[in-house]
Structure formats: structure tokens, C-alpha cells
């Protein structure tokens, strides 16, 4: 019983970080219908930026989010402008797969050149500190990472719900043609949306780098997890992706601790398969698509 509860605690805290990564992924899909295969690479890029700030300038990894997030926002906007915007709108869903995959490979290549392929991690002094709460261990970094995820997701929610830009995004998600007829600049919304997706990846990357050893090739595993999370949650639904990430985190952790690590990820895929069979649009696909 102790191991089960410990595994659930670990799963929830880890799931929060994946929720942050997946929220950007699903936002980009919601706005542009672009399946961004470079989201994992953006997370790894964010982790390396944080690593550099930590190693070169001694900057605390959590504090570095204040630099990496706006920086990656600008990078995202630039990439959308340079690579996604020129794609013909009729083929954007298919072509974007190729373009974003190429982008992921490009980021991986540059990082391999700059940092080598050796595994790295970000190791502040408090990285392994844990609180003992009623006999259970709660790791400080995981807890803060979870809290940071909640904060960033809350900011994202407020931006989408309470700002003019957010209304434009939601209008574009619901009906791009009508939104344009009402004066929404779809190109601008798309660029800023892609930037927001990259920004969430950067903030997730900072904590990912503290929780896991990573190298430039880590994005392959990340993107497969992120895609399953956003499909389970319902493509385009941020709330759905948060729930799905928590489901994935807890399912993986519990199965790994109580049964076998080999079945850990497979269990999640069984859940995904069942959801797709019974509810092809994902957990929250239809109901919240328009509201993100």
C-alpha cells in the first residue's frame, strides 16, 4: 500500500510536467491544425538553454524560466513565420508534419554539434532534496515543477480567456474563416500561438532537465509521449491534455512500481486504444474544442 501511494504521488507530480509540454502542443494544433513534431525538440532546447544559464552563469533553473520562455516565444514566432506560414493552407496538416519533423532533426543536429550527444542533466544543490510527509517522499524539484506547471497553465488559461488575443485565438480555433471575416488576423494569431507553444515547451524543458538526464536525441521519446497525451485528451483541448498527462503519469508510475516497468508505458497505450475505440475524439475533444 505504501508503494502504491508513493507511486501515485510521483505520477501526479510527473504528470504535471508533461501537462505543461502537451498544452503547447495541443494549442498549436487547435489554432493551426499543425501537428508539431518539433515540440519535444523545443523542450530539449529549453533544457539546454537552462543548462547553459545554470553552468555558465550560475542561474537557478527555475529563475531561468523568465529568460528561456520569452526567448523561445520569439524563436517560435520566427519559426512559424519562416517555415509554417508559407505552407499552402489546404495541405498544411500533412506538410507541417514533414516541416516540423525536419525542424526537430535540425534542432537535434545543432544541439549535438554544440553540446555533444553525451547525457547531461541540470543539478542544482537542492535537486535531490525531499520532504518526508507522513512517511512519503515528496521531492522538492518535482513539487516545484508541478507548481510551475500549474502557474504557467493558469497564465495560459487567463491569456486565452481574458485577453483580446485569447478571444482571437479561440475564434480562430472555432472557425478560422469567420474569425478572419470578423477582422482577426489569422497569420498573426498563428505566429503568436506557435510562439506560445514553444514558450510552454521552454518552461517545461527547464524542469525536465532537472528531473531527467537528457541529450539531443531525447526529443524522440518525448514527442511520442506528447502525441499520445494530446490524442488521449482530445486534439486541441488544453484541459483534456492536462487530464491525459496526469492519467499517463499516474498509470505509468503505478504500473512501474507495482507490476513491471516493461508494462508501464504499454498500459497507457492500452488506455489510449480503449479511449480511441470508445470515444475517437479523445476525452475532451468535442465538448471543449472551441473553448480550448
Amino acid at each position: 500500500m505504501h508503494a502504491l501511494i508513493q507511486a501515485i504521488i510521483l505520477g501526479i507530480l510527473t504528470g504535471g510536467v508533461y501537462a505543461l509540454m502537451a498544452s503547447g502542443q495541443t494549442l498549436i494544433f487547435g489554432i493551426m491544425k499543425v501537428v508539431n513534431l518539433a515540440q519535444g525538440a523545443f523542450v530539449v532546447l529549453g533544457a539546454y538553454l537552462t543548462y547553459t544559464l545554470f553552468v555558465q552563469f550560475g542561474m537557478d533553473p527555475f529563475a531561468s524560466v523568465l529568460i528561456t520562455t520569452p526567448l523561445m516565444f520569439l524563436v517560435g514566432v520566427g519559426l512559424q513565420w519562416a517555415l509554417i506560414r508559407p505552407l499552402h493552407s489546404d495541405d498544411v496538416a500533412q506538410l507541417s508534419l514533414l516541416v516540423t519533423f525536419a525542424l526537430a532533426l535540425g534542432v537535434e543536429g545543432i544541439l549535438s554539434f554544440a553540446y555533444s550527444t553525451t547525457l547531461t542533466n541540470i543539478q542544482p544543490k537542492y535537486a535531490n532534496f525531499s520532504w518526508t510527509v507522513v512517511g512519503y517522499q515528496v521531492n522538492l524539484v518535482r513539487f516545484c515543477a508541478f507548481a510551475l506547471s500549474l502557474v504557467v497553465l493558469a497564465v495560459l488559461y487567463l491569456v486565452l480567456k481574458r485577453t483580446k488575443f485569447g478571444r482571437a485565438v479561440r475564434a480562430t480555433v472555432q472557425n478560422p474563416m469567420s474569425a478572419q471575416l470578423l477582422g482577426v488576423n489569422a497569420q498573426r494569431v498563428s505566429a503568436l500561438g506557435f510562439g506560445l507553444g514553444a514558450a510552454t515547451a521552454a518552461s517545461a524543458g527547464s524542469v525536465f532537465g532537472m528531473l531527467n538526464a537528457f541529450n539531443p536525441g531525447s526529443h524522440y521519446d518525448l514527442i511520442s509521449r506528447l502525441l499520445t497525451v494530446v490524442v488521449l485528451g482530445g486534439l486541441g483541448s488544453i484541459g483534456g491534455s492536462v487530464v491525459a498527462a496526469l492519467v499517463m503519469g499516474v498509470a505509468s508510475s503505478v504500473v512501474s512500481a507495482m507490476a513491471s516497468p516493461i508494462w508501464s508505458d504499454f498500459t497507457f497505450f492500452i488506455v489510449l486504444l480503449l479511449v480511441l475505440l470508445l470515444r475517437p475524439r479523445g476525452l475532451f475533444g468535442a465538448r471543449t474544442r472551441g473553448a480550448l
Partner: peptide, 20 residues
């Protein structure tokens, strides 16, 4: 006695099982 796949990034659940 458990084997884990190479893509296992987070070892904490496995170690929780070992500790138990």
C-alpha cells in the same frame, strides 16, 4: 527482479518498488 525499457527516463517508480 525487473527489467525496464531503454526509454525509461524516470526511475523513481522503479526505485519505489525496490525500496518496498
Amino acid at each position: 527482479d525487473q527489467t525496464y525499457p531503454s526509454e525509461t527516463a524516470d526511475m523513481t517508480p522503479i526505485v519505489a518498488g525496490i525500496a518496498a
